[in-house]
Amino acid sequence: MKHLTWFSATSLALGFAFLYLPMIILVIYSFNASKLVTVWAGFSTRWYGELIQNEAFLDAAWVTIRVAVASSTLATILGTMAAYTLVRAGRFTGRTLFSGMIYAPLVMPEVITGLSLLLLFIGIGLDRGIFTIILAHTTFSMCFVSVVVSARLVAFDRSLEEAAMDLGCAPMEAFRFVTLPIIAPAVISGWLLAFTLSLDDLVIASFTAGPSATTLPIKIWSSIRLGVSPEINALSTILIGIVTVGVISASLISKRGAIRRQNEEQAALRA
């Protein structure tokens, strides 16, 4: 083991403090017995109990989960298709333009994405509600899926698809029986990423949500304006937990895939 110099140790500590100190404080205070957020009065799970009784929060949570599942599934399908076309179809006319455009939402300010979606929904007369949030989330998360999946496809041996066609698969069947099972880890981690992004999005959801559907982040944001209640700390802690699990499993799945691939390649070389 190499020892860190005092400089890198300090940088690391500072960096992690900046990243995680606020969250740690939030998590600690979610177990505070006192109603006053800033005064510690002993350990208690009281706020988690009250949270479960809160209809408005539970409704919002249910909307959020439905939106996250639906939009990440849609985004995974569309993002995978886009990645497949970009990596596979070779140099068709407009490829550069298309690939530039598909990644644009990655860097586009969320406010602008949200606003433009809002204008679109008003323009085509779509009533705002859970459906429009799903559409909006699909739009901004599919490019993330696309990035993850195309990274895997670039490393994919084309001759496997040719072999599948040679053995009687039409192009769609070759995708279904050979390509998809092999790129599955990347597709799953893309889905988890999209799910997490949807779960904690506030800006785009605020633009595209209607009175009939409120997501959890919106609910939290609006109740905070009436003062921070320890209930929200509890809720946020749960959210942090879900997001952490999502991100860790996404990276584990793709890492395990990479390790297995590497092992297989090494085995192939040794053979």
Binding site: D157, S159, L160, E162, A163, D166, L167, V178, P181, I182
Partner: peptide, 14 residues
Amino acid sequence: AVNMMFQSYALFPH
């Protein structure tokens, strides 16, 4: 009615 054995074998890894 033609089958090819690929230079890289192209066995399906899964």
